[in-house]
């Protein structure tokens, strides 16, 4: 802040921007500091196109890409200001030449009187050195950018455990064997269903799996190793690769013997 220097120039604008020049205009400062303004200096700053590691950055809408350079995002660079004119300009208007086509620039202006230099004006908007038709066509556009592809392995969704078998009944009973039959459940999941058969001696509450090794595929099963004279209840569970389902309703107690009273299945 020099004593007696003028105030900063106001309202710096760019006009008629083209491939290699821009006309910069401004308004004289509100205060001249007590002596008349001798002229102005115009400074320019080149906007850097910097590469960013991450694309999640807001892209400056005044940015224009002429080349398809992935990763490039316009940002106000940290480049220093360079003075465009060596001697002070009298009028509040100056054609800046020698610009590089496709680059973006900002401008500021300083006023000078016999006491010294003003503070710089506010910075102009960003302007790109390019043909006006191209600028109109490309306003606010940018070439595509694609980030690194991230690959992840996902577990296929867990399968659905099947529901309960239905309509389990004892269809045959002798002292040597008992035959059970049932119907598959409503919800089956995507794949084939298999079955585990369980037995329980009446009066106890301990269920034992009969086919411990391999589940059966058909909805019927014959049990051979039953103790004569004992009464048994039976029930069946479905299974698939997702797991083992809930057991069916248990059958009525069936006494193993020659004279068998086979109960009718529920619901009949």
């Amino acid at each position: 802040e020099v004593e007696g220097a003028p105030g900063a120039p106001l309202d710096v604008k760019c006009q008629d921007a083209n491939k290699d020049y821009v006309i910069v205009t401004w308004k004289q400062p509100a205060v001249d500091g007590g002596s008349s303004i001798l002229g102005y200096f115009v400074d320019r700053q080149t906007q850097e196109q910097i590469s960013l590691m991450y694309p999640h950055t807001a892209i400056n809408s005044s940015c224009i890409f002429l080349t398809n350079r992935p990763n490039s995002v316009c940002e106000v660079g940290t480049t220093h200001w360079s003075q465009c004119n060596d001697t002070p300009i009298k009028f509040a208007r100056f054609p800046v030449t020698g610009l590089v086509e496709g680059r973006s620039y900002t401008f500021r202006v300083r006023a000078v009187n016999k006491s010294g230099m003003s503070r710089p004006s506010r910075v102009s908007e960003v302007v790109a050195a390019m043909d006006p038709a191209d600028r109109a066509r490309m306003r606010g556009t940018s070439a595509p950018w694609t980030g690194q592809i991230i690959v992840t392995e996902e577990e296929p969704a867990e399968g659905v455990v099947p529901g309960k078998p239905k309509e389990l009944e004892v269809t045959e009973a002798t002292k040597n064997y008992v035959v059970l039959s049932w119907k598959p459940p409503g919800e089956r999941g995507h794949e084939g269903i298999m079955y585990y058969v369980e037995k329980c001696v009446s009066g106890t509450d301990s269920w034992q799996r009969v086919n411990t090794e391999i589940p059966v595929k058909s909805p019927r099963f014959a049990l051979f190793d039953l103790a004569e004279g004992k009464a048994y209840s039976f029930r069946v569970r479905c299974c698939n690769s997702a797991g083992v389902g809930e057991p069916s309703e248990a059958t009525e107690a069936t006494t193993v013997g020659d004279k068998l009273d086979i109960p009718s299945a529920p619901g009949r």
């Binding site: 595509p144 950018w145 694609t146 991230i150 690959v151 992840t152 392995e153 996902e154």
Partner: peptide, 8 residues
């Protein structure tokens, strides 16, 4: 296999 790509 899930491939994700961010595009601007």
């Amino acid at each position: 296999a899930k491939f994700r790509c961010f595009v601007t």
